[in-house]
């Protein structure tokens, strides 16, 4: 279809809008001046500053631990939820189950955070657990909203999947559990990987929910950044952002490269 000039230009402007702030973050992370937006000269001193800041290093470690655990638990729970939604057909309580799985995706974070905190407080008053708030409560909270994302990603893969391969395995004598591990799991593996990565990123990124349910001594990286940023722009945050962007870009480009390299052998010789 012949295309006019309007759509490509409008789309390019849209893409530029998405990347403008990120590019400026990266550029000014190499700025010597303390005034973040006035360029003086190239320097990497803020990166050094970053690695000498014990508060940031400590918080980064806390966030990493939380993200690793929450993403992994969310992966298991979210995959089970996806199986239920994609494969169990109708059952009593399906609407409720479906609602509980998808609602956390759009629930405003302040509500999720507040409600979980109040739950933890009530539980502590009633059962004595969890005693106080900290790592555990943040992990529970993050698992809850991350599993919704995992469920959505895995469910769509399960729905797209060719069911006849599972039936073929059954037909060849594999028990249902065996079919799950031999056929279903390898087929949805890419979705599991991206589901886990998504959960990991979301957990690493969350400020609002963690602020509600965290306790003394359990400050996550976003919480530390937020308190720094509230006081004004600080160049070492630029350096931190650049590092995170670099890690994500390398990861995404790397997986793209791997997928592209695999492609030629995947091609049907007759197609």
């Amino acid at each position: 279809m012949k295309r006019g000039w309007f759509v490509p230009i409008a789309a390019s402007l849209g893409f530029a809008f998405l990347y403008l702030p990120i590019v400026s973050l990266v550029i000014y992370s190499f700025n010597e001046s303390k005034l973040v937006t006035v360029w003086s000269r190239f320097s990497t001193k803020w990166y050094g500053e970053l690695f000498r800041d014990p508060q940031i290093l400590q918080a980064a470690w806390v966030s990493l631990k939380i993200a690793l655990i929450s993403a992994s638990v969310a992966l298991v729970l979210g995959t089970l939820a996806a199986l239920v939604l994609a494969r169990f057909g109708r059952f009593a309580g399906r609407t409720l189950f479906n609602g509980m799985t998808t609602a956390p995706l759009v629930m405003p974070e302040v509500i999720t955070g507040l409600s979980l905190l109040l739950l933890f407080v009530s539980m502590e008053l009633t059962f004595g657990w969890p005693a106080g708030r900290g790592l555990t409560t943040i992990i529970i909270a993050h698992t809850t909203f991350c599993m919704a994302y995992v469920a959505v990603v895995v469910q769509s893969r399960l729905v797209d999947m060719d069911r006849s391969t599972e039936e073929a395995a059954l037909d060849l004598g594999a028990t249902p559990v065996r079919v799950f591990f031999d056929i279903t799991l390898p087929t949805i593996a890419p979705a599991l990987v991206s589901g886990w990565l998504l959960a990991f990123t979301l957990s690493l990124d969350d400020l609002v929910i963690a602020s509600f349910v965290s306790g003394p001594g359990a400050s996550t990286l976003p919480m530390v950044i937020f308190s720094k940023v509230r006081l004004g722009v600080s160049p070492d945050v630029n350096a931190l952002a650049t590092l995170m962007i670099a890690v994500v870009s390398v990861g995404v480009l790397g997986s793209l490269w791997i997928m592209n390299r695999r492609k030629p052998t995947n091609r049907n010789p007759q197609a």
């Binding site: 060719d162 006849s164 391969t165 039936e167 073929a168 395995a169 059954l170 037909d171 060849l172 004598g173 594999a174 028990t175 249902p176 031999d182 056929i183 390898p186 087929t187």
Partner: peptide, 19 residues
């Protein structure tokens, strides 16, 4: 159950395990 029947099937989509 299907996995104990002395019956095998060739599927319309062939259902070959891609991996």
């Amino acid at each position: 159950p299907p996995y104990r029947r002395p019956v095998n099937m060739m599927f319309q989509s062939y259902a070959l395990f891609p991996h």
